[in-house]
């Protein structure tokens, strides 16, 4: 599933009457089976963009086009946290997408258990989200998203709340799963290393309102491993992105 993002703008009206521009005439395209990350300073409308692609938020201008003129492809969001329903146990949380599709309980159970095994969540069927670590909760969220096999996977800083070590492990796990599933992925992150490690291309956005700054292709082969981070190509891309982002982050912090 390829996605064309065309001229998207969005302004939010605050309760105080002040208007906040989140996105400004943003256009870019994502190929089928491509893994694209979006980096940018806080508040540059990254999350809003994901919600627009998912159809949860209507843009003020512009449109999202999908390959083959398809109107409503399945696009599943993986949230940073709070994405699991606290009143459902792990089994029901993972099966939520299938349940809402109307898949009967018995069929669903088999599929859910298979995916729980794949994400090494077996044995935690009857646990509630609050009984799990954040890292495990995010694995539950990933299992739930991959289980519905969506055309597009929208990830909103899924590892943002994790400690650095857990984050590395889950990045590897995501790479591994994605290699098998090959969904088209749009991945929002603050973490430059994470973006380079995972993506085929990185979209760099400017400070609010989010405008396209640069698109950086990542010329690293796949499958990738964590050791890539020490390679000169990797470090030079990291520097290149930071040079682009630093002034934007300073702007956002009012440090210029």
């Amino acid at each position: 599933m390829s996605i064309i993002i065309e001229d998207i703008s969005k302004v939010f009206a605050k309760d105080t009457g002040r208007e906040v521009a989140a996105l400004d005439k943003l256009s870019f395209a994502i190929e089928e089976h491509e893994f694209v990350s979006i980096v940018g300073p806080s508040g540059c409308g990254k999350t809003t963009l994901l919600k627009i692609v998912a159809g949860l938020v209507k843009p003020d201008t512009g449109q999202i086009k999908f390959s083959g003129g398809q109107k409503n492809p399945s696009a599943v969001i993986v949230f940073q946290d709070q994405g699991l329903l606290p009143w459902l146990n792990v089994l029901d949380n993972v099966g939520l997408g299938l349940e809402l599709k109307g898949i009967p309980k018995a069929t669903r159970r088999t599929q859910v258990l298979e995916f729980m095994f794949r994400f090494r969540l077996d044995g935690f069927e009857s646990h509630f989200p609050h009984e799990l670590s954040i890292g495990m909760r995010q694995r539950v969220a990933l299992a739930r998203a991959f289980l519905t096999n969506p055309d597009i996977m929208l990830m909103d800083e899924p590892f943002g709340a994790l400690d650095a070590q857990t984050r590395l492990i889950l990045q590897e796990e995501l790479l591994h799963t994605w290699r098998a599933e090959q969904n088209t992925v749009l991945f929002v992150t603050h973490d430059i290393d994470e973006a380079i490690l995972l993506s085929d291309r990185i979209i760099v956005l400017s400070d609010r309102p989010g405008k396209l700054q640069t698109i950086i292709p990542i010329p690293l082969g796949r499958p990738r491993e964590l050791t890539l981070k020490d390679q000169p190509t990797f470090t030079s891309i990291r520097q290149q992105i930071w040079k682009l982002l630093e002034p934007e982050v300073r702007k956002e912090l009012k440090l210029t």
Binding site: G83, L85, L96
Partner: peptide
Amino acid sequence: TYYEVIENYGASRLDTFRKVVLP
């Protein structure tokens, strides 16, 4: 966020009531 999650998976009004509002 819970409303967005369930809407994202294509929930109907009844689904939203049963899965989010009531519990």
